[in-house]
């Protein structure tokens, strides 16, 4: 019932730790942008809806990127929304390119930066040709790591580069005996033939990083687990291992286990119910690959900001059709 450390914090730290002011500020901005709403429902009602939607994680839909990445809760909510809106892509086994996944992301967040999608795709494709096709779950879990731990991974990349070039960014922490030993390695001919960096040294650096990092990091114990299975590894090898790690996914808490990714009976039922209301569509869905237009059906329900984007996107005729049909079913 009580977690005493929360009660002992100074006011500002308590508020900052839980991002209370971020949300209050955003609530006021939203209120100023929607004065019509408050004239209809009243201010208390507006705030009730706002904070409830934050709790439910629906507050990030169609918001600007700077807000979506502002707090860990927003990031987790966005990952969850992305999964729930587009998991039918995975269910149908469709493979999409990086650009296509980026379009899906932009449906939920119009100014989502391409760079982040590229980085996620690089984890899946291991720096191969970037126009390759990826499965939904591969992309989703790689994207999760890249998006949620964005700042952490940037620091990791810097550490990795330092280690590769023979510098030890961690000299203060690492005991002299072992650091001397490690420093000699990369200069020797043998080491430069091998790919990547030594896992134990890499872990020491990352452990130190986790301690002082102000952004979210994966739990150090799990990072250790990932790194203890190998002797050496490359940067992308590390990211792939993180993205496939079951425990890290659980600790992050936004997505279900890989096996349950396509399993959501409640949502299936809802979709089926919606489809049943649309005359003439049931056949085309059961027919097969056209079912990929399904994900497009979820967003149109929620309104206008989505539509111009949708048309701007290079879309096939079917999903356009489905948009209109869904609208009809609502009227």
């Amino acid at each position: 019932m009580l977690s005493p450390e929360r009660l002992g914090l100074p006011d500002y730290e308590y508020l900052a730790q839980r991002h209370v002011l971020t949300y209050m500020e955003d609530a006021v901005c939203q209120l100023l942008e929607n004065k019509e709403d408050i004239s209809q429902y009243g201010i208390a009602r507006f705030f009730t809806e706002y904070f409830n939607s934050v709790c439910q994680g629906t507050h990030i839909l169609f918001r600007e990127f700077s807000f979506i990445q502002a707090t860990p809760h927003n990031r987790a909510s966005f990952l969850r929304a992305f999964w729930r809106c587009f998991r039918t892509v995975g269910k149908n086994g469709d493979l999409l390119t990086m650009r296509e996944y980026h379009c899906l992301l932009q449906l939920l967040c119009p100014d989502f930066p391409l760079e982040l999608t590229q980085k996620a795709a690089r984890i899946v494709l291991m720096d191969d040709a970037m126009d390759c096709l990826m499965s939904f779950s591969d992309f989703l879990f790689a994207f999760q790591i890249q998006f949620y731990y964005s700042e952490f991974l940037e620091s990791v990349a810097a550490i990795y580069q330092d280690l590769l070039s023979g510098k030890n960014p961690n000299t203060v922490i690492v005991p002299t005996s072992s650091s001397g030993q490690h420093r000699q390695r990369p200069t020797s001919g043998e080491a430069s033939m091998l790919e990547g960096v030594e896992a134990p040294l890499f872990y020491q650096c990352l452990e130190n990083l986790c301690d002082r990092h102000k952004y979210s990091c994966p739990p150090p114990a799990l990072v250790k687990e990932v790194l203890s299975n190998v002797q050496r590894l490359t940067f992308y090898g590390f990211l792939v291992a993180l993205s496939k790690h079951h425990g890290i996914n659980q600790a992050l808490g936004a997505l279900p286990d890989k096996g349950d990714l396509m399993h959501d009976p409640a949502l299936d039922e809802e979709l089926e119910r919606l489809l049943a209301q649309i005359p003439g569509l049931v056949n085309s869905v059961t027919a097969g690959p056209e079912a990929s237009c399904l994900p497009a059906r979820t967003p149109p329900r929620v309104g206008s900001p989505w539509r111009p984007l949708h048309h701007a996107r290079k879309v096939d005729a079917e999903s356009d059709g489905s948009t209109e049909e869904t609208d009809e079913s609502e009227t």
């Binding site: 939203q30 209120l31 942008e33 929607n34 019509e36 709403d37 429902y41 507006f46 809806e49 706002y50 409830n52 939607s53 994680g57 629906t58 507050h59 839909l61 169609f62 918001r63 929304a81 729930r84 809106c85 959501d264 409640a266 949502l267 809802e270 979820t298 329900r301 929620v302 309104g303 206008s304 900001p305």
Partner: peptide, 15 residues
């Protein structure tokens, strides 16, 4: 309730 429903303000964001 299983489908994401945006808050009314988000709907109005583009307005």
């Amino acid at each position: 309730d299983v489908l994401p429903v945006p808050l009314p303000s988000a709907k109005m964001a583009a307005v």
